[in-house]
């Protein structure tokens, strides 16, 4: 598989502050790649490094196999959708979308055709004459997408593209982005702090923490086999088991993770029960119940489908899971 973007031992400092520290990774051509992390973790800096707005302190970036150290942003074959969309307020939608083509010197009839196509693709045909301030947040987002895509980039960079949208619109846009990616077959690189967004859209996810990649893998891989308590808690609904609890269960003092839906409730005296615990609460989530259990001082969240027999608060139950779901983390204890 060819490489779209490659980072080699890349560091980026702002004065004394290290934004990105010695990061190496590769994004494959045609991949939907997500950079996930809390704010200040270095993911946005990485995106700006690819776009060329930021210069690395050391290390190399390759785009489509070519070292881009000396290539300014306006000559890179990438386009970016900004978090605040950055639509030009003095131009209407068509002019915004046509901007890249105008700069390239594309003739007017070709420009008009390409803009119509791009607006059609993001389902905004007929909005060409509106000004950005006459559009809703979701529509502006689509204009920003069209403005980037009309240039037929090899790589599309998305900087928290759904951050400013409300929940329903966000879910809808997630699907549309996924469809667009499938349709166009180009590389998408997404920056987000929303794990749900990264996990649902991306082929592979790099989780950033303090300027480094904490773990890189497929969403399933991250979910099932987190390498550190940070990943497990950041990526989602896994129970992070403390070394003390793991020691009690297995005799090994390591962090471990156990997904909520992998645990089942059995009778306290049932022989399949690996541990017993007390029910602290149960919360109705629609399709399931989330039950919190206290076992040997370790809080565990258990998801059971609605319609099952519900335990009551204070009841003692047995907890059971299959050995393959119990995941010991690789991180050594410090």
């Amino acid at each position: 598989m060819e490489s779209a973007v490659g980072f080699e031992n890349l560091s980026c400092h702002f004065g004394e502050i290290r934004a990105v520290g010695n990061v190496s990774f590769e994004v494959k051509k045609g991949e939907f790649f997500a950079m996930l992390g809390p704010s200040g973790s270095g993911k946005s800096t990485c995106l700006r490094l690819i776009a060329g707005f930021q210069k690395p302190t050391s290390g190399r970036i390759k785009i489509l196999g070519e070292d881009v150290a000396l290539i300014p942003p306006y000559r890179r074959k990438v386009n970016i959708v900004f978090q605040d969309y950055a639509l030009f307020p003095h131009m209407n939608v068509s002019e915004n979308v046509a901007y890249g083509l105008l700069i390239k010197g594309v003739s007017k009839p070709d420009r008009v055709k390409a803009v119509d196509q791009a607006l059609d693709m993001v389902r905004l045909s007929g909005y060409g004459r509106r000004k950005p301030n006459q559009l809703s947040g979701g529509q502006r987002q689509r204009v920003a997408l069209a403005r980037a895509l009309v240039n037929k980039p090899e790589i599309l960079l998305l900087d928290e593209p759904l951050g400013a949208l409300d929940l329903k619109l966000r879910e809808q846009m997630q699907e549309e982005l996924k469809d667009l990616h499938r349709e166009l077959g180009i590389t998408f690189i997404l920056v987000t702090h929303d794990q749900g967004e990264a996990m649902s859209m991306a082929d592979r996810v790099a989780v950033f923490s303090e300027g480094k990649i904490a773990q890189l893998g497929t969403p399933e891989n991250l979910y099932k086999y987190p390498q550190s308590p940070f990943i497990a808690s950041f990526v989602g609904s896994s129970n992070v088991l403390s070394p003390e609890f793991v020691d009690f269960l297995t005799g090994r003092k390591r962090w471990a993770s156990l997904r909520s839906e992998a645990i089942s409730l059995v009778g306290a005296t049932d022989e399949s029960a690996q541990v017993t615990g007390t029910i602290l609460s149960n919360i109705y989530l629609g399709s399931s119940y989330r039950i919190t259990v206290d076992a040997q001082g370790q809080r565990l969240r258990v998801l059971i489908p609605a319609g099952c027999l519900l335990p009551v608060e204070g009841e003692t139950v047995g907890l059971s899971w299959s050995g393959s779901d119990f995941h010991l983390m690789e991180d050594e204890l410090t």
Binding site: A51, F53, P72, P73, Y74, V78, F82, P89, I103
Partner: peptide, 19 residues
């Protein structure tokens, strides 16, 4: 980010200034 957007879309400094 408007200036960055313009650069990203292929405009050099003079074009960004003008447009």
């Amino acid at each position: 980010s408007l200036i960055e957007a313009s650069m990203d879309l292929g405009a050099n400094s003079f074009q960004t200034l003008r447009y």
